[in-house]
Lab assay of single mutants.
Amino acid sequence: MAAGGDHGSPDSYRSPLASRYASPEMCFVFSDRYKFRTWRQLWLWLAEAEQTLGLPITDEQIQEMKSNLENIDFKMAAEEEKRLRHDVMAHVHTFGHCCPKAAGIIHLGATSCYVGDNTDLIILRNALDLLLPKLARVISRLADFAKERASLPTLGFTHFQPAQLTTVGKRCCLWIQDLCMDLQNLKRVRDDLRFRGVKGTTGTQASFLQLFEGDDHKVEQLDKMVTEKAGFKRAFIITGQTYTRKVDIEVLSVLASLGASVHKICTDIRLLANLKEMEEPFEKQQIGSSAMPYKRNPMRSERCCSLARHLMTLVMDPLQTASVQWFERTLDDSANRRICLAEAFLTADTILNTLQNISEGLVVYPKVIERRIRQELPFMATENIIMAMVKAGGSRQDCHEKIRVLSQQAASVVKQEGGDNDLIERIQVDAYFSPIHSQLDHLLDPSSFTGRASQQVQRFLEEEVYPLLKPYESVMKVKAELCL
Protein backbone atom coordinates (compact mmCIF):
# COMPACT_ATOMS: atom_id res chain seq x y z
CA MET A 1 0.00 0.00 0.00
CA ALA A 2 1.38 3.40 -0.93
CA ALA A 3 2.48 5.77 1.82
CA GLY A 4 0.38 8.83 2.50
CA GLY A 5 -3.37 9.04 2.68
CA ASP A 6 -6.46 11.15 2.36
CA HIS A 7 -6.00 13.43 5.35
CA GLY A 8 -9.58 14.68 5.14
CA SER A 9 -10.97 11.16 5.47
CA PRO A 10 -12.12 9.64 8.78
CA ASP A 11 -10.23 6.53 7.69
CA SER A 12 -6.88 8.35 7.72
CA TYR A 13 -4.92 9.65 10.70
CA ARG A 14 -4.79 13.40 11.09
CA SER A 15 -2.81 15.22 13.76
CA PRO A 16 -5.06 16.31 16.65
CA LEU A 17 -3.07 19.54 16.73
CA ALA A 18 -4.63 20.48 13.40
CA SER A 19 -7.97 18.71 13.64
CA ARG A 20 -8.78 19.46 17.28
CA TYR A 21 -6.67 22.12 18.94
CA ALA A 22 -4.73 24.74 16.97
CA SER A 23 -6.25 27.88 15.47
CA PRO A 24 -7.21 28.06 11.77
CA GLU A 25 -4.71 30.86 11.18
CA MET A 26 -1.77 28.85 12.55
CA CYS A 27 -2.86 25.72 10.69
CA PHE A 28 -2.98 27.73 7.47
CA VAL A 29 0.58 29.02 7.89
CA PHE A 30 1.78 25.40 7.97
CA SER A 31 -0.56 24.19 5.22
CA ASP A 32 0.51 22.86 1.83
CA ARG A 33 -1.27 25.73 0.11
CA TYR A 34 0.67 28.34 2.05
CA LYS A 35 3.94 26.50 1.54
CA PHE A 36 3.68 25.92 -2.19
CA ARG A 37 2.19 29.33 -2.87
CA THR A 38 5.25 30.79 -1.12
CA TRP A 39 7.50 28.64 -3.32
CA ARG A 40 5.87 30.22 -6.37
CA GLN A 41 6.23 33.68 -4.85
CA LEU A 42 9.94 33.03 -4.31
CA TRP A 43 10.34 31.92 -7.92
CA LEU A 44 8.59 35.11 -9.02
CA TRP A 45 10.80 37.31 -6.83
CA LEU A 46 13.90 35.57 -8.19
CA ALA A 47 12.77 36.08 -11.79
CA GLU A 48 11.89 39.74 -11.17
CA ALA A 49 15.29 40.42 -9.61
CA GLU A 50 17.13 38.52 -12.35
CA GLN A 51 15.25 40.51 -14.99
CA THR A 52 16.07 43.81 -13.26
CA LEU A 53 19.75 42.85 -13.22
CA GLY A 54 19.77 42.16 -16.95
CA LEU A 55 18.98 38.49 -17.53
CA PRO A 56 16.80 37.77 -20.62
CA ILE A 57 13.45 37.41 -18.84
CA THR A 58 10.43 39.09 -20.42
CA ASP A 59 7.60 41.07 -18.86
CA GLU A 60 5.23 38.52 -20.36
CA GLN A 61 6.94 35.70 -18.48
CA ILE A 62 6.82 37.68 -15.23
CA GLN A 63 3.13 38.44 -15.70
CA GLU A 64 2.35 34.81 -16.46
CA MET A 65 3.98 33.77 -13.19
CA LYS A 66 2.10 36.46 -11.25
CA SER A 67 -1.20 35.32 -12.72
CA ASN A 68 -0.69 31.73 -11.61
CA LEU A 69 0.58 32.09 -8.04
CA GLU A 70 -2.69 30.70 -6.68
CA ASN A 71 -3.37 28.27 -9.53
CA ILE A 72 -1.85 25.20 -7.89
CA ASP A 73 -2.79 21.77 -9.22
CA PHE A 74 -2.07 19.70 -6.12
CA LYS A 75 -3.04 16.45 -7.82
CA MET A 76 -0.56 17.04 -10.64
CA ALA A 77 2.15 17.99 -8.15
CA ALA A 78 1.58 14.78 -6.19
CA GLU A 79 1.77 12.70 -9.36
CA GLU A 80 4.95 14.48 -10.43
CA GLU A 81 6.54 13.93 -7.02
CA LYS A 82 5.63 10.24 -7.15
CA ARG A 83 7.31 10.03 -10.55
CA LEU A 84 10.37 12.18 -9.82
CA ARG A 85 10.86 11.45 -6.10
CA HIS A 86 11.63 15.16 -5.66
CA ASP A 87 9.11 17.61 -4.24
CA VAL A 88 10.73 20.81 -5.53
CA MET A 89 11.12 19.59 -9.11
CA ALA A 90 7.55 18.28 -8.99
CA HIS A 91 6.35 21.81 -8.27
CA VAL A 92 8.71 23.35 -10.83
CA HIS A 93 7.03 21.16 -13.45
CA THR A 94 3.53 21.88 -12.09
CA PHE A 95 4.13 25.65 -12.08
CA GLY A 96 5.65 25.42 -15.54
CA HIS A 97 2.61 23.55 -16.83
CA CYS A 98 0.35 26.53 -16.08
CA CYS A 99 3.08 29.02 -17.09
CA PRO A 100 4.32 27.58 -20.42
CA LYS A 101 6.00 30.81 -21.53
CA ALA A 102 7.84 31.18 -18.21
CA ALA A 103 8.59 27.48 -17.73
CA GLY A 104 12.16 27.80 -18.98
CA ILE A 105 13.19 30.49 -16.49
CA ILE A 106 11.46 29.18 -13.34
CA HIS A 107 14.05 28.27 -10.67
CA LEU A 108 16.84 29.75 -12.81
CA GLY A 109 20.19 29.29 -11.03
CA ALA A 110 18.52 28.13 -7.84
CA THR A 111 18.73 24.98 -5.74
CA SER A 112 15.92 23.26 -3.86
CA CYS A 113 16.81 25.03 -0.62
CA TYR A 114 16.20 28.37 -2.29
CA VAL A 115 12.48 27.68 -2.06
CA GLY A 116 12.55 25.14 0.78
CA ASP A 117 14.65 26.96 3.34
CA ASN A 118 13.54 30.47 2.48
CA THR A 119 9.92 29.38 2.75
CA ASP A 120 10.64 27.81 6.13
CA LEU A 121 12.13 31.09 7.34
CA ILE A 122 9.12 33.04 6.08
CA ILE A 123 6.84 30.56 7.84
CA LEU A 124 8.84 30.78 11.09
CA ARG A 125 8.65 34.57 10.98
CA ASN A 126 4.93 34.64 10.25
CA ALA A 127 4.17 31.97 12.84
CA LEU A 128 6.06 33.98 15.46
CA ASP A 129 4.04 37.02 14.40
CA LEU A 130 0.90 35.03 15.21
CA LEU A 131 2.16 33.92 18.62
CA LEU A 132 3.40 37.30 19.86
CA PRO A 133 0.00 39.05 20.17
CA LYS A 134 -1.55 35.90 21.63
CA LEU A 135 1.05 35.81 24.38
CA ALA A 136 0.64 39.55 24.92
CA ARG A 137 -3.10 39.06 25.41
CA VAL A 138 -2.51 36.34 28.00
CA ILE A 139 -0.18 38.67 29.89
CA SER A 140 -2.71 41.49 29.65
CA ARG A 141 -5.55 39.36 31.05
CA LEU A 142 -3.40 38.14 33.91
CA ALA A 143 -2.22 41.70 34.58
CA ASP A 144 -5.86 42.78 34.98
CA PHE A 145 -6.40 39.85 37.33
CA ALA A 146 -3.30 40.71 39.38
CA LYS A 147 -4.19 44.39 39.64
CA GLU A 148 -7.72 43.65 40.85
CA ARG A 149 -6.45 41.25 43.54
CA ALA A 150 -3.16 42.93 44.41
CA SER A 151 -4.14 43.30 48.08
CA LEU A 152 -6.14 40.08 48.61
CA PRO A 153 -4.16 38.06 51.19
CA THR A 154 -3.67 34.37 50.57
CA LEU A 155 -1.62 31.64 52.14
CA GLY A 156 1.75 31.22 50.48
CA PHE A 157 3.24 27.78 49.96
CA THR A 158 6.82 26.59 49.81
CA HIS A 159 7.31 22.84 49.26
CA PHE A 160 3.48 22.93 49.04
CA GLN A 161 3.49 23.48 52.79
CA PRO A 162 1.98 26.60 54.41
CA ALA A 163 4.42 29.50 54.47
CA GLN A 164 4.16 33.28 54.93
CA LEU A 165 1.17 35.06 53.46
CA THR A 166 1.32 36.65 50.03
CA THR A 167 -1.50 38.09 47.92
CA VAL A 168 -3.43 36.55 45.05
CA GLY A 169 -2.20 39.36 42.79
CA LYS A 170 1.44 38.93 43.81
CA ARG A 171 1.30 35.20 43.10
CA CYS A 172 -0.17 35.96 39.67
CA CYS A 173 2.76 38.31 39.03
CA LEU A 174 5.10 35.33 39.37
CA TRP A 175 3.28 33.84 36.39
CA ILE A 176 3.29 37.12 34.48
CA GLN A 177 7.02 37.63 35.00
CA ASP A 178 7.84 34.30 33.34
CA LEU A 179 5.52 35.07 30.44
CA CYS A 180 7.09 38.51 30.00
CA MET A 181 10.47 36.83 29.63
CA ASP A 182 8.92 34.53 27.03
CA LEU A 183 7.44 37.50 25.15
CA GLN A 184 10.82 39.23 25.06
CA ASN A 185 12.52 36.04 23.89
CA LEU A 186 9.93 35.41 21.17
CA LYS A 187 10.37 38.98 19.92
CA ARG A 188 14.15 38.66 20.01
CA VAL A 189 14.25 35.39 18.08
CA ARG A 190 11.75 36.78 15.57
CA ASP A 191 13.81 39.93 15.00
CA ASP A 192 17.03 37.90 14.77
CA LEU A 193 15.72 35.75 11.91
CA ARG A 194 17.76 36.13 8.74
CA PHE A 195 16.86 35.07 5.22
CA ARG A 196 18.83 32.27 3.56
CA GLY A 197 18.74 34.29 0.40
CA VAL A 198 20.10 33.37 -3.03
CA LYS A 199 23.11 31.13 -2.38
CA GLY A 200 23.18 28.16 -4.78
CA THR A 201 23.88 24.51 -4.12
CA THR A 202 26.63 24.72 -1.50
CA GLY A 203 26.24 28.34 -0.50
CA THR A 204 28.96 29.71 -2.80
CA GLN A 205 26.60 31.43 -5.28
CA ALA A 206 28.61 29.84 -8.11
CA SER A 207 25.59 29.32 -10.39
CA PHE A 208 24.56 32.96 -10.11
CA LEU A 209 28.11 34.16 -10.65
CA GLN A 210 28.06 32.19 -13.90
CA LEU A 211 24.66 33.60 -14.89
CA PHE A 212 25.98 37.13 -14.42
CA GLU A 213 29.27 36.35 -16.16
CA GLY A 214 31.46 36.86 -13.11
CA ASP A 215 29.83 40.10 -11.92
CA ASP A 216 30.14 39.91 -8.11
CA HIS A 217 28.12 43.08 -7.61
CA LYS A 218 25.10 41.74 -9.50
CA VAL A 219 25.16 38.51 -7.50
CA GLU A 220 25.17 40.50 -4.26
CA GLN A 221 22.42 42.75 -5.58
CA LEU A 222 20.33 39.71 -6.51
CA ASP A 223 20.66 38.34 -2.98
CA LYS A 224 19.78 41.72 -1.47
CA MET A 225 16.80 42.34 -3.76
CA VAL A 226 15.16 38.97 -3.09
CA THR A 227 15.81 39.33 0.64
CA GLU A 228 14.06 42.71 0.67
CA LYS A 229 11.15 41.41 -1.42
CA ALA A 230 10.65 38.70 1.21
CA GLY A 231 10.48 41.32 3.95
CA PHE A 232 13.75 40.50 5.70
CA LYS A 233 16.27 43.14 6.75
CA ARG A 234 19.26 40.89 6.12
CA ALA A 235 20.32 37.50 4.85
CA PHE A 236 23.02 35.12 5.98
CA ILE A 237 26.37 35.89 4.40
CA ILE A 238 27.50 32.32 5.02
CA THR A 239 25.40 29.21 4.35
CA GLY A 240 26.00 25.67 3.26
CA GLN A 241 23.26 24.27 1.11
CA THR A 242 20.87 25.17 3.94
CA TYR A 243 20.69 27.93 6.50
CA THR A 244 22.33 26.77 9.72
CA ARG A 245 20.03 24.49 11.67
CA LYS A 246 21.07 26.35 14.81
CA VAL A 247 18.25 28.73 13.88
CA ASP A 248 15.72 25.96 14.48
CA ILE A 249 17.32 25.30 17.87
CA GLU A 250 16.97 28.96 18.80
CA VAL A 251 13.32 29.12 17.79
CA LEU A 252 12.21 25.86 19.39
CA SER A 253 14.18 26.60 22.57
CA VAL A 254 12.12 29.74 23.07
CA LEU A 255 8.91 27.82 22.41
CA ALA A 256 9.97 25.08 24.83
CA SER A 257 10.67 27.72 27.46
CA LEU A 258 7.17 29.10 26.90
CA GLY A 259 5.87 25.57 27.42
CA ALA A 260 7.63 25.40 30.79
CA SER A 261 6.04 28.69 31.86
CA VAL A 262 2.55 27.59 30.87
CA HIS A 263 2.99 24.21 32.57
CA LYS A 264 3.95 25.89 35.85
CA ILE A 265 1.04 28.35 35.68
CA CYS A 266 -1.55 25.70 34.89
CA THR A 267 -0.17 23.35 37.54
CA ASP A 268 -0.63 26.12 40.11
CA ILE A 269 -4.20 26.66 38.92
CA ARG A 270 -4.89 22.92 39.19
CA LEU A 271 -3.55 22.82 42.75
CA LEU A 272 -5.58 25.89 43.70
CA ALA A 273 -8.66 24.23 42.20
CA ASN A 274 -8.10 21.27 44.50
CA LEU A 275 -7.88 23.70 47.44
CA LYS A 276 -11.10 25.31 46.15
CA GLU A 277 -9.46 28.74 46.21
CA MET A 278 -9.51 29.33 42.45
CA GLU A 279 -11.03 27.71 39.37
CA GLU A 280 -10.72 27.97 35.64
CA PRO A 281 -13.94 28.75 33.73
CA PHE A 282 -16.53 25.97 33.89
CA GLU A 283 -19.40 26.06 31.39
CA LYS A 284 -23.01 25.57 32.49
CA GLN A 285 -23.39 22.43 30.36
CA GLN A 286 -19.85 21.15 30.96
CA ILE A 287 -19.51 17.61 32.37
CA GLY A 288 -16.57 16.88 34.65
CA SER A 289 -17.00 13.12 34.89
CA SER A 290 -19.28 10.55 33.28
CA ALA A 291 -19.57 8.75 36.63
CA MET A 292 -19.26 11.56 39.20
CA PRO A 293 -21.66 14.42 38.35
CA TYR A 294 -20.29 16.71 41.08
CA LYS A 295 -16.83 16.87 39.52
CA ARG A 296 -15.41 20.20 38.30
CA ASN A 297 -12.18 19.07 36.70
CA PRO A 298 -9.64 21.72 35.58
CA MET A 299 -9.75 20.27 32.06
CA ARG A 300 -8.30 23.30 30.26
CA SER A 301 -5.34 23.59 32.60
CA GLU A 302 -4.76 19.86 32.29
CA ARG A 303 -4.79 20.18 28.50
CA CYS A 304 -2.23 22.98 28.69
CA CYS A 305 0.03 20.85 30.87
CA SER A 306 -0.34 17.86 28.58
CA LEU A 307 0.54 19.84 25.46
CA ALA A 308 3.25 21.88 27.19
CA ARG A 309 5.10 18.66 28.00
CA HIS A 310 5.02 17.78 24.31
CA LEU A 311 6.28 21.24 23.39
CA MET A 312 9.16 21.04 25.84
CA THR A 313 10.36 17.73 24.40
CA LEU A 314 10.37 18.94 20.78
CA VAL A 315 13.51 21.03 21.25
CA MET A 316 15.51 17.80 21.26
CA ASP A 317 14.76 17.33 17.55
CA PRO A 318 16.57 20.42 16.21
CA LEU A 319 19.42 19.87 18.67
CA GLN A 320 20.07 16.44 17.23
CA THR A 321 19.39 17.55 13.66
CA ALA A 322 21.96 20.35 13.82
CA SER A 323 24.53 17.94 15.21
CA VAL A 324 24.29 15.54 12.24
CA GLN A 325 24.49 18.05 9.39
CA TRP A 326 27.72 16.82 7.78
CA PHE A 327 29.74 19.39 5.86
CA GLU A 328 27.43 21.48 3.61
CA ARG A 329 24.32 19.40 4.52
CA THR A 330 22.78 15.97 4.72
CA LEU A 331 19.14 15.01 4.37
CA ASP A 332 18.95 13.95 8.02
CA ASP A 333 17.07 17.17 8.64
CA SER A 334 14.27 17.00 6.09
CA ALA A 335 11.70 14.52 7.40
CA ASN A 336 12.30 15.52 11.00
CA ARG A 337 11.82 19.23 10.34
CA ARG A 338 8.56 18.61 8.47
CA ILE A 339 7.20 17.32 11.78
CA CYS A 340 8.86 19.19 14.63
CA LEU A 341 8.65 22.77 13.34
CA ALA A 342 4.95 22.61 12.58
CA GLU A 343 4.12 20.68 15.74
CA ALA A 344 6.01 23.14 17.94
CA PHE A 345 4.10 26.13 16.62
CA LEU A 346 0.71 24.42 16.54
CA THR A 347 1.27 23.28 20.12
CA ALA A 348 2.39 26.72 21.30
CA ASP A 349 -0.60 28.25 19.53
CA THR A 350 -2.97 25.85 21.28
CA ILE A 351 -1.66 26.42 24.79
CA LEU A 352 -1.74 30.20 24.35
CA ASN A 353 -5.32 30.14 23.04
CA THR A 354 -6.32 27.90 25.94
CA LEU A 355 -4.46 29.91 28.58
CA GLN A 356 -6.04 33.13 27.32
CA ASN A 357 -9.45 31.50 27.66
CA ILE A 358 -8.58 30.41 31.20
CA SER A 359 -7.23 33.82 32.19
CA GLU A 360 -10.34 35.57 30.90
CA GLY A 361 -12.56 33.58 33.26
CA LEU A 362 -10.57 32.75 36.40
CA VAL A 363 -12.82 32.51 39.46
CA VAL A 364 -11.50 33.27 42.96
CA TYR A 365 -13.20 32.20 46.19
CA PRO A 366 -12.16 34.74 48.88
CA LYS A 367 -14.11 33.03 51.67
CA VAL A 368 -12.25 29.77 51.13
CA ILE A 369 -8.95 31.65 51.07
CA GLU A 370 -9.92 33.47 54.27
CA ARG A 371 -10.80 30.23 56.00
CA ARG A 372 -7.46 28.66 55.11
CA ILE A 373 -5.66 31.74 56.40
CA ARG A 374 -7.57 31.46 59.69
CA GLN A 375 -6.43 27.85 59.99
CA GLU A 376 -2.74 28.73 59.66
CA LEU A 377 -2.40 32.36 60.71
CA PRO A 378 -2.48 31.77 64.49
CA PHE A 379 0.75 29.78 64.28
CA MET A 380 2.33 32.43 62.05
CA ALA A 381 1.27 35.19 64.44
CA THR A 382 3.02 33.71 67.48
CA GLU A 383 6.18 35.77 66.99
CA ASN A 384 4.13 38.98 66.80
CA ILE A 385 2.25 37.95 69.94
CA ILE A 386 5.51 37.33 71.80
CA MET A 387 6.85 40.75 70.76
CA ALA A 388 3.62 42.44 71.90
CA MET A 389 3.84 40.71 75.29
CA VAL A 390 7.47 41.81 75.75
CA LYS A 391 6.45 45.40 74.95
CA ALA A 392 3.71 45.06 77.59
CA GLY A 393 6.33 44.08 80.21
CA GLY A 394 6.39 40.29 79.90
CA SER A 395 9.38 37.95 79.70
CA ARG A 396 10.22 36.65 76.24
CA GLN A 397 11.22 33.23 77.57
CA ASP A 398 8.11 32.84 79.74
CA CYS A 399 5.88 33.93 76.86
CA HIS A 400 7.65 31.61 74.43
CA GLU A 401 7.02 28.64 76.71
CA LYS A 402 3.36 29.56 77.18
CA ILE A 403 2.91 29.87 73.41
CA ARG A 404 4.73 26.59 72.81
CA VAL A 405 2.42 24.67 75.13
CA LEU A 406 -0.75 26.26 73.77
CA SER A 407 0.41 25.75 70.16
CA GLN A 408 1.00 22.05 70.74
CA GLN A 409 -2.46 21.72 72.27
CA ALA A 410 -4.06 23.53 69.32
CA ALA A 411 -2.09 21.41 66.83
CA SER A 412 -3.35 18.27 68.54
CA VAL A 413 -6.94 19.44 68.09
CA VAL A 414 -6.30 20.00 64.37
CA LYS A 415 -4.39 16.79 63.68
CA GLN A 416 -5.81 14.29 66.16
CA GLU A 417 -9.43 15.46 66.37
CA GLY A 418 -9.89 17.11 62.97
CA GLY A 419 -10.99 20.33 64.63
CA ASP A 420 -10.22 23.96 63.84
CA ASN A 421 -7.14 25.77 65.02
CA ASP A 422 -8.16 27.19 68.42
CA LEU A 423 -4.83 28.70 69.46
CA ILE A 424 -6.20 32.23 69.58
CA GLU A 425 -9.18 31.13 71.68
CA ARG A 426 -6.73 29.52 74.13
CA ILE A 427 -4.72 32.74 74.29
CA GLN A 428 -7.89 34.79 74.78
CA VAL A 429 -8.89 32.81 77.89
CA ASP A 430 -5.40 32.64 79.37
CA ALA A 431 -4.93 35.36 82.00
CA TYR A 432 -1.20 35.51 81.29
CA PHE A 433 -1.95 37.19 77.95
CA SER A 434 -4.51 39.67 79.32
CA PRO A 435 -2.20 42.68 78.69
CA ILE A 436 -2.55 42.13 74.91
CA HIS A 437 -6.06 40.68 74.59
CA SER A 438 -7.27 43.97 73.10
CA GLN A 439 -4.50 43.83 70.46
CA LEU A 440 -5.20 40.34 69.15
CA ASP A 441 -7.47 41.41 66.28
CA HIS A 442 -4.81 43.81 65.04
CA LEU A 443 -2.05 41.24 65.48
CA LEU A 444 -4.07 38.77 63.41
CA ASP A 445 -4.98 41.10 60.54
CA PRO A 446 -3.89 39.14 57.42
CA SER A 447 -2.93 42.32 55.56
CA SER A 448 -0.19 42.97 58.12
CA PHE A 449 1.48 39.70 57.06
CA THR A 450 1.70 40.35 53.30
CA GLY A 451 4.64 42.74 53.44
CA ARG A 452 5.00 44.91 50.33
CA ALA A 453 3.13 42.48 48.06
CA SER A 454 0.52 44.97 46.83
CA GLN A 455 3.13 47.68 46.23
CA GLN A 456 5.29 45.18 44.35
CA VAL A 457 2.35 44.30 42.11
CA GLN A 458 1.68 47.94 41.28
CA ARG A 459 5.32 48.72 40.56
CA PHE A 460 5.85 45.57 38.49
CA LEU A 461 2.81 46.23 36.32
CA GLU A 462 3.63 49.89 35.76
CA GLU A 463 7.38 49.56 35.18
CA GLU A 464 7.68 46.24 33.38
CA VAL A 465 4.40 44.83 32.13
CA TYR A 466 2.47 47.75 30.65
CA PRO A 467 5.46 49.12 28.66
CA LEU A 468 6.08 45.63 27.25
CA LEU A 469 2.45 45.34 26.12
CA LYS A 470 2.23 48.79 24.51
CA PRO A 471 3.14 47.62 20.95
CA TYR A 472 0.21 45.17 21.08
CA GLU A 473 -2.54 47.60 22.18
CA SER A 474 -4.39 47.34 18.87
CA VAL A 475 -4.94 43.56 19.19
CA MET A 476 -5.83 43.34 22.88
CA LYS A 477 -9.61 43.06 22.46
CA VAL A 478 -9.56 39.70 20.65
CA LYS A 479 -11.26 37.01 22.74
CA ALA A 480 -10.19 33.37 22.90
CA GLU A 481 -12.99 30.95 22.06
CA LEU A 482 -12.57 27.23 22.61
CA CYS A 483 -14.69 24.71 20.74
CA LEU A 484 -13.49 21.76 22.82
Rank of each mutant, 00 (worst) to 15 (best):
Q210N: 02
Q210K: 00
V478Y: 09
V315C: 11
Y13I: 13
G361S: 14
V262Y: 00
Y365E: 04
D430W: 15
D6W: 07
L252C: 13
L377P: 02
P10T: 09
K82M: 10
N126L: 00
A291T: 07
R190Y: 06
L186Q: 03
K415T: 12
L165E: 01
F345Y: 07
L124H: 00
N118L: 01
L440T: 00
F345L: 11
S448C: 06
R245P: 06
F212L: 07
V414T: 07
Q63T: 15
L55E: 08
S334F: 03
R371E: 01
A453D: 10
F379V: 10
L311E: 08
F460P: 09
Q356G: 00
K233F: 04
Q164N: 12
V475E: 04
K101Q: 07
D317G: 08
L135P: 07
G169H: 01
C113Y: 00
L179E: 00
L346H: 00
E473R: 10
K470L: 13
R404M: 15
F232V: 09
A78E: 01
R37V: 01
K218S: 13
I265M: 14
V368S: 11
A230S: 14
I369D: 12
F195D: 01
A322G: 10
D11S: 07
K391L: 00
T242W: 05
G104D: 10
K75D: 03
Y21I: 04
R137Q: 09
F145A: 13
F30L: 09
T244C: 10
D129F: 13
T347L: 12
H217Y: 15
H437P: 04
R459V: 11
S151H: 10
N274A: 01
I385M: 14
L355V: 15
G169K: 08
Y114F: 06
G104Y: 03
Q455T: 11
R374M: 15
L84R: 11
M181I: 06
D216Q: 02
G109F: 13
E81Q: 09
T244N: 01
D420F: 15
K284N: 13
L183N: 00
G214S: 12
P56T: 13
Q161F: 00
K170H: 03
L271V: 04
L258D: 07
G8F: 13
L135A: 09
V429W: 04
P24T: 14
C173A: 03
L362Q: 00
S395E: 04
P16K: 00
G4N: 07
